[in-house]
């Protein structure tokens, strides 16, 4: 197969675009796709201070690498989730990436800062690990960005992530979630930092190709808690369709964004936000969901310490952290 641009040997075929590219032309195409998405959704400007959430996987490292190469003012935040060897490997991979590029990195250790890692939290609140994990990551990213005067939070969600989330929201008619699902959520609320997803137009396979061709060393293993996750089920279903009908995932999400979401957003009732009585972050009730969850977890751990092995006892030897950026 030949490169659609230079006619040299192609490295990757993109059936949904009816093109194939050699390595240099693909990397240029990928950068253009991401830059275009940033501009189309007015995600950020050169003078914005960006905090990028980095897990150590291909998506977040690709985004961080892109933002550094384009010379945006970017700092990464990594959350050590306390999920055994998986979290240790994710952390060491992220630190290595930062050190090789001299890039600023902040690490928050969930067990150290909040008393439990994800496994112990899950045991305490008797919910699937992804539930507490997702809420914790969203909250901590926003809080750290707000406390450190960042203007934008950037996440590595790709087209497959967004299409799978949309599919789940549609199948369960989650009206509130549908109205909020966007690659760029600007905020006019104090303490809620603007949240953007610059990779939302590129597929997971395209992101992986970019990472491999650029030599980005990322964590290939899956989070042990993601086995059987609904998101993977939806991705598999969408990719079955995509194989027969290339471009379906993009159409599904982009038409939703252009035609459906604006209607749903307009129909949403406005709601009052106030400060959480415990942490001061923005919430609709007296206490935010994050503080409620952690209060519940610590209460359960105190009532029944045998059931919940406290994170600080369970965690691996303490990980070394890079200096926290001012």
């Amino acid at each position: 197969m030949k490169c659609s641009k230079c006619k040299g040997r192609a490295s990757i075929e993109l059936r949904r675009h009816h093109v194939a590219y050699c390595k240099p032309d693909y990397l240029e195409f990928f950068d253009n796709q991401v830059e275009r998405a940033i501009h189309k959704q007015r995600m950020f400007k050169p003078d914005d201070r960006i905090m990028v959430g980095v897990s150590g996987g291909k998506d977040s490292l690709t985004l961080w690498d892109f933002l550094l190469r384009m010379e945006y003012d970017v700092t990464a935040l990594h959350i050590h989730l306390g999920i055994g060897e998986y979290s240790n490997h994710s952390h060491s991979t992220t630190v290595k990436f930062a050190e090789e590029r001299g890039a600023p990195l902040i690490t928050v250790d969930l067990a150290e800062q909040y008393g439990m890692g994800v496994p112990e939290l899950s045991q305490a609140i008797r919910r699937v690990p992804c539930s507490g994990c997702g809420l914790s990551k969203r909250y901590i990213l926003n809080k750290e960005a707000y406390d450190r005067d960042f203007t934008v939070v950037a996440m590595g969600h790709n087209l497959d992530d967004e299409a799978a989330t949309l599919m789940g929201n549609v199948l369960h008619w989650e009206m509130g979630a549908l109205a909020r699902q966007s690659p760029s959520l600007p905020t006019n609320r104090e303490k809620l930092i603007k949240r953007v997803k610059p990779l939302y137009t590129v597929t997971e396979r395209e992101v992986a190709a970019n990472a491999i061709l650029r030599g980005i060393e990322y964590v290939e293993e899956e989070c042990p808690n993601s086995v059987g996750a609904r998101s993977i089920m939806y991705k598999n279903a969408l990719d079955q369709i995509e194989t027969q009908s290339p471009g379906t995932k993009h159409a599904f999400f982009s038409i939703f964004l252009d035609r459906i979401r604006p209607v749903m957003e307009a129909a949403q009732e406005d709601f009052e936000l106030r400060e959480c009585d415990i942490c001061g972050q923005a919430t609709t009730g007296a206490v935010c969901a994050f503080c409620r969850m952690w209060e519940n977890a610590h209460r359960k751990a105190t009532e029944n310490p045998q059931r919940v092995q406290q994170g600080k006892d369970a965690q691996e030897p303490s990980v070394e952290k890079l200096p926290v950026q001012p």
């Binding site: 897990s55 996987g57 291909k58 998506d59 992804c130 994990c133 997702g134 990551k137 996440m155 590595g156 969600h157 497959d160 992530d161 597929t203 997971e204 396979r205 992101v207 992986a208 190709a209 491999i212 290939e220 899956e222 989070c223 808690n225 993601s226 996750a229 998101s231 993977i232 991705k235 598999n236 990719d239």
Partner: peptide
């Protein structure tokens, strides 16, 4: 062969 698919929360 590398699988590109990942799941769970992000």
């Amino acid at each position: 062969i590398v699988s590109a698919i990942s799941g769970g929360t992000q």
